[in-house]
Design a protein around this nucleic acid. Sequence first.
DNA 1: GTTCCGCATGAATCGATAG
DNA 2: ACTATCGATTCATGCGGAA
Lengths: 293, 293
Amino acid sequence: MDQLDLNRRGSILLGDCEVLLATLPPASVDLIVTSPPYADQRKHTYGGIAPDQYVDWFLPISAELYRVLKPSGSFILNIKERVVDGERHTYILELILALRKQGWRWTEEYIWHKKNCYPGKWPNRFRDAWERCLHFTKEKQFAMYQDEVMVPTGDWATTRLSNLSETDKVRDNSRVQSGFGKKISNWIGRDMAYPTNVLHMATECGNKQHSAAFPVELPSWFIKLFTQPDDIVLDPFLGSGTTAVACVELCRRYIGIDISPEFIKIAEDRLSACYPKPLQLFIAEETNGTYNS
Amino acid sequence: MDQLDLNRRGSILLGDCEVLLATLPPASVDLIVTSPPYADQRKHTYGGIAPDQYVDWFLPISAELYRVLKPSGSFILNIKERVVDGERHTYILELILALRKQGWRWTEEYIWHKKNCYPGKWPNRFRDAWERCLHFTKEKQFAMYQDEVMVPTGDWATTRLSNLSETDKVRDNSRVQSGFGKKISNWIGRDMAYPTNVLHMATECGNKQHSAAFPVELPSWFIKLFTQPDDIVLDPFLGSGTTAVACVELCRRYIGIDISPEFIKIAEDRLSACYPKPLQLFIAEETNGTYNS
DNA sequence: GTTCCGCATGAATCGATAG
DNA sequence: ACTATCGATTCATGCGGAA
C-alpha cells in the first residue's frame, strides 16, 4: 500500500469514491465498513439519490469495492430503507439481490438495535429503532476473530459485573484490544460468551460538531471482529470520520473517502484529537495515580 | 361470520389452508398473524418446502389471505431465512417483492429480538437472535390501536414495577385488556411510552407439552395493536395454537387452520385449558383474598 | 414463602461421514 | 460429485427441588 501514501495511521481522500477507488490496487483492503448516504439524504453533497435509482447508483461503486477487497475480507454495509408513501421502499432488498449477481456473498444480516432511537409519533408506525448491517464477503471462508468481541454472560453481567469499578473495565478493555495478555476466552473462562447477530448500541446524539451516521462503537465492533492490528480498513463514504476514529483507537490503518470538503475537514479535526486506546489508558494513568491493580 | 360456525371463541379447521381459505367469505378477517413453516423445516408435517420453491408455494396462499382480509386489516408474517451454503438465502427478499406485486403493501418490518436464541458456535457467524415480523396491509390507512401496547418507561419499570407482586401485574394487565379502567396513557400518565419496532421476547423452550414456534407474547402484541375485542384473527398455520391462545386471553375470535391432526389436537388441548385474562384475574382473586387495591 | 442452584430444552449451523 | 444424516458446539430461560 505504499503507493497510496498511506502513513502510519491512514489516508483521507477528497473526491468521488467511484473515481478514487479505481486508483487503489486490487485485493489490498481487509475490511470495508460504511454507511452510505441513504436515499434522499445528504442532498447537498450527493444530490439526494432517488430510491428508484439507488441500486443503479450503487452498483458501479460496489464493483470497485469488490476489486479492492482481499479474498479473505468483509464488507459491512450499514443501511436502512426509507418510508415512501406509507410503506417501506424495496431498494435495499433489490440491492442485496443485485450485489449477489455482482459476485458478493450475502453472508449475514446483523441488526443494529438503536437503544435511543429518534423520538416521534405517527398514526401507522412506531419509532424505527433498528438498522441493517449487511455482511457481504467474496469467499465462503473469510477472516473472523470472534474472541475479540466476546461479552460477559447474562448471569455474570447482572451479578459480578455490577461490582466492578469503571476503571477496572477500562483497563481490562484496553489490555485486550492492544493484544497484550491472554485471550479473553481463557482469561475469563466461562464468564464470557460469544455475542449474537443483534447489536445493542445507542446513537450518538450529544455531539454538536458532527452528525455522525453511527456511533464509534459500531465500526469498532466490526473492525475488532474482522481485522487485526495494522490491517487496512476502507470507508468510501467517510462522512464525519467515525470509521477512521475507530481505526486509530484500535491501531488499524484507514482509507477514508468523501466527496464533501466540509466533511473531510470535520473528519480531520476529529482524527487530530484521537489516540489509540492503549495510549489513552497510558494518559489516563499518568493523570490519575490512584489506580491500584 | 355466522356461516363459518364460529362459536363465541373461534374455530379450528383441519386441512390444507389454501383449500380451506377459499371457503371463507371475502373481507371478513381483521388480522392475520402467522408463522408459516420455514424452508426445509417441519418436514414431517409440511413436507419441507425447498428454499428455491418457497415463493411459488406461498403466493397462492397469500392470494387467499388477501381476499379474506378486511381493507382495514393487517397481515403479520413471522419468518426468518435459513443459511444455505454459508450465506443467507434470498427467498424472503423475493417473497416480499412478490407479495407487493400481488397487491400487498409492505408497511413495516418489525424485529423480534430473541433474548434466548439457540446456542452454538461456528467459524463464520454468531448465534441468530432475531426474526422478521413483516407487516403487510391492503390500504395505506388501516386499523392500529397504539395505546394498547404502551410500555412503562425505564425509570418506572425499574423502580415501581419491580415492587409489584405478580397478582398486581395480572390485575393491571387484565383491566386494561378487558377495557375496564382508564386508558394506560391516562392511568400511568407520563410514565408510559410508545414502543418501537423492536420487540424483545424470549422463546418458550421449557414447555414439555408443545414446542410453540413463538411465545404467546408475540401474537398477543400484534393482536392488541391491530384489533379490538371480538374482532376476528386468522392463523392459517396454527401449529400448536399459540395465536388462538392469545385470542382467547384477549377476548378476540380466532380462525385457526393446520394440516396436521397432531398439531390440531395439541392446539385444542391448550385451548381447553385457556381463559380470558379478566377471568384469570377473577380466579386468582377468588383464590387469593389478600389483594388490596 | 422466599431464594438459589441444577437441569433440560430449543424454527440453528457446520463439518464429517456415509450412501 | 452431490445429497442425506449425525454429532458437536453452545447459552438464556423457566421449571422443579432443596436449603
